[in-house]
Amino acid sequence: MQYLWRTPGSRIAPEEASPIGPPPLEIRGLTVAYHRRPVLWNIDYAAPPGGLIAVVGPNGAGKSTLIKACLGLVPRVSGTVEVFGRPIAKQRRLIGYVPQRESVDWDFPVSALDVVAMGRYGKIGWFRPVTRAHKEAALHALERVGMADFARRQIGQLSGGQQQRVFLARALAQEAQLYFMDEPFAGVDAATERAVLQVLRDLDAAGRTVICVHHDLQTVSDYFDHALLLNTRVVAQGPVSRVMTPDLLSRTYGGRPMPAPAAAEAS
């Protein structure tokens, strides 16, 4: 468990870190089915400690389902998921979560600060109200995504990108070790894209692990260290330089030839 408490900035390569302790996320034999149709099939995966991991695959490949199954939000047919060597139910405090923006009602009567403060609820515990210290932690998280000026704004009055940053700030307020993010770059403006990327890099520098569903193949190699190519099963996994190849991508995307980032750069 040593790398849990690494000081910010000290990066340990996966091959060095693996003998130290269990991986941040280990999935064994995971299968998920809706009715009788498998959406994820026999997934085995161990996330390297510390690093930004992209989950890449076509629509309907089960990317979001993988995250939700890891978090226990959709029932598993079979398989186990362990976080730092223990079942997820025992490691909730170590997990941060950024759901898809469309998953909630943005007309809900709360301010941006209220939403970010929800990231602290796990630490606050039953029945206790949100104290000033927790509100300050929430405000600090909003600062980190450049949204402190909007703390008191009702969330429905924010733009889509600003809403995405509020969700990101809520996850930061969780002060987790392992983050799951479901398409944080989807449909955001340039300022939000920069803010999200900066947060990812800060988390990486602080030794956190981030597992991120990502749809934009062009940016995978720039933004992430590792990739998990998914299409119902794991097609490939590893450092982006090794797995973001035209061959593996075309196998992930159903055999059709794909314009890979490497090919795009070469032309």
């Binding site: 979560y97 709360v110 929800m118 609820y121 796990g122 809520r170």
Partner: peptide, 11 residues
């Protein structure tokens, strides 16, 4: 009421 999925992940 706002985000049951997030609530569940938090335990």
């Amino acid at each position: 009421a706002f985000d049951p999925g997030f609530a569940a992940v938090q335990g």
